[in-house]
Design a protein around this nucleic acid. Structure first.
Length: 563
RNA sequence: UGGGGCGUGGCCAAGCGGUAAGGCAAGGGACUUUGGAUCCCUGACUCGGAGGUUCGAAUCCUCCCGCCCCAGCCA
């Protein structure tokens, strides 16, 4: 942290400042320790931004460490995806580490604990261990194997390592206190036998360390000064400390807990996320509706907007539920200044400008971004037949409707004023075309007489229009707090049926034919969109990142009933 | 009825004994060639509740209430 920085510090930053001032630590070293058993989501992003951010602002270091102590769940491809996601978010780790690289050292510490009489091999079955653990209000019972001699335990531990026991036959346990009020301290398991190949160590080991036994040691090996985890691990801190305090470790890290992120209208649990995929409700981990980093990326979110969001939500210890509107706000704010404005008619309505010469076409100079004049202008073709948005015309307009209606005049962005003269309907009464008239004197979008035209519409020249597919995404669930589902219901009962709407008849101005995957645009008056990677030259595909704020929609919904 | 954590406006969140920051959302207005953006303005007479200490308390003490987490050979 810069000296003299007046910024308010979160509680972890305050602790770090104190630690630096007291000399407890010389340099801040943190770590982001994912288990490679799934994809990262926005909740992980909070932790990533916290850990890497702390290292950045205190000029320290942050490691990316795979906490890969369970071969049953972990896979190489998850590890690769996590590395990519952390890098995409814009962070560089000081070291790339793997808990599995420390297995030998863990074993030595286990031997040290056994030798000190602080660990023992328990031959009880998993069921017996569970039954003798006691309950929240009753103490547990000592294992009948608790008082073996050190020699016997050492021998048994070696046999465990050599594979002389089957899975479930025995475990190594810390000898702490079976009547401890904190259940985690009731002789926790340190090693279990798992005759499974590990994605990195192969078949070298047939027993694997448990989280509580391993985690503090991983931190100690790497010299982590501040080991940050989520609230549910607060109960484990006494254990974290116990393991570190009872052997000789190279450094003494401290654990701190913060509240994990919850976002409204979505879920963060790997299990539920996986369920959505397996049931075909979404199309994979990178479906733009998913709160995964890959989903957000495909949706069009930028790394900087996600980092901004993580900075906005703060770091504290109270369980919280952040409004998804805040996430939307951060991407809107960024894209407002960086996204090129283009015109795309989502649901086209044909307009023929009767007094515009047939066969004539011209190029209209169009501002790429009014927020940033340095982005320049481009030329957009205009002609006698254009398309406008169906929603921009009402045969019988309500009050305060500034758009097109019979006899009403509007402005076509950067082009001309347009007045509706005639409506053409099909046999079933649907409006299929508008016959309009333009004012040749209004080129560019204004006239010498200075008359006011309230509505400005986006448009696309019919002969030049490019057919595009547009995917409109919305929130996945209808329940704000998904942890408050009604008794007996599942997330299936709260799925938003409109989380994806695909539009295939949308028409865009020619420049969009050149758009590349992950390019981001503002479709004028509508929202921000990005090019999906399934996009092709023939049919460009756009994902809606977020809609623009829609004051008109708000007015309408409020005035519902009084027209 | 064990242990741990947390309760500040609708949602986050500062505040660390001196008289309630900020952001999002909401409402009102100005401006506008995006009903976008921008710009103003409004909102906790009060900090879960009740007592107490103090000249002074969201901040200290006591009691009470509420919510979350823990009984994997998961992390």
């Amino acid at each position: 942290m810069e000296p003299g920085n007046e910024k308010q510090l979160n509680f972890i930053e305050q602790i770090i400042v104190e630690d630096l001032e007291s000399g407890r630590v010389q340099e801040v070293i943190t770590r982001f320790p994912p288990e490679p058993n799934g994809y990262l989501h926005i909740g992980h992003a909070k932790s990533i931004c916290l850990n890497f951010g702390l290292a950045e602002s205190f000029k320290g270091k942050c490691n990316l460490r795979f906490d890969d102590t369970n071969p049953e769940k972990e896979e190489e491809h998850y590890m690769q995806a996590i590395k990519e996601d952390v890098g995409w978010l814009g962070f560089q780790w000081a070291q790339l580490c793997y808990a599995s690289d420390y297995f030998e050292q863990f074993y030595r510490w286990a031997v040290e604990l056994v030798t000190a009489g602080l660990a023992y091999v328990d031959r009880q079955s998993p069921e017996e261990i569970r039954q003798t653990r006691g309950t929240l209000t009753e103490p547990g019972e000592n294992s009948p194997f608790r008082n073996r001699s050190v020699e016997e335990n050492l021998d048994l531990l070696e046999k465990m390592r050599k594979g002389e026991f089957d899975e479930g036959e025995c475990v190594l346990r810390a000898k702490i206190d079976m009547s401890h009020p904190n259940i985690n301290m009731r002789d926790p398991v340190m090693y279990r036998i798992l005759k499974k190949a590990h994605y990195r160590t192969g078949n070298h080991w047939c027993m694997y360390p448990m989280y509580d036994f391993a985690h503090g040691y991983e931190d100690a090996i790497e010299g982590i000064t501040h080991s940050i985890c989520t609230l549910e691990f607060a109960d484990h801190r006494p254990l974290y400390d116990w393991f570190l305090d009872n052997v000789h470790v190279p450094s003494r890290p401290r654990q701190y807990e913060f509240a994990r992120l919850n976002l409204s209208y979505t879920v963060m649990s790997k299990r539920l996320l996986l369920g959505l995929i397996q049931e075909g409700i979404v199309n994979g981990w990178d479906d733009p509706r998913m709160p995964t980093i890959q989903g957000l990326r495909r949706r069009g979110y930028t790394p900087s907007s996600i980092r901004r969001f993580c900075g906005e939500i703060g770091v504290a210890k109270s369980n919280s539920m952040v409004d998804y509107e805040l996430l939307e706000h951060t991407i809107r704010e960024e894209l407002n200044t960086t996204a090129q404005r283009v015109m795309v008619v989502l649901r086209p309505l044909k307009v023929v400008i009767e007094n515009y010469p047939e066969g004539r076409e011209e190029l209209i100079e169009y501002q790429n971004n009014p927020e940033d004049p340095s982005m320049g202008t481009r030329m957009v073709p205009f002609s006698r037949e254009i398309y406008i948005e169906q929603d921009d015309f009402r045969e019988d307009p309500p009050k305060k409707f500034f758009r097109l209606a019979p006899g009403k005049e509007v402005r076509l962005k950067h082009a001309y004023y347009l007045t509706c003269r005639e409506i053409i309907k099909d046999t079933s009464g649907n409006i299929v075309e508008l016959r309009c008239e333009y004012d040749p004197q209004s080129r560019g979008g204004e006239t010498a007489d200075g008359r006011k035209v309230r509505g400005t519409l986006h448009w696309v020249s019919a002969p030049h229009a490019v057919n595009v597919e547009v995917r409109l995404y919305d929130k996945l669930f209808t329940l704000k707090n998904m942890s408050e589902m009604e008794e007996g219901k599942s997330y299936h009962d709260y799925l938003n049926p409109n989380s994806l709407e695909v539009l295939r008849g949308s028409l865009a101005e020619p420049v969009l034919k050149e758009a590349k995957p992950f390019d981001r645009f503002q479709f004028l008056r509508q929202g921000y969109y990005t090019v999906d990677y399934e996009s092709t030259q023939d049919t460009p595909i756009f994902n809606r990142i977020v809609a623009l704020k829609d004051t008109w929609a708000k007015i309408q919904s409020k005035g519902l009933g009084n027209r």
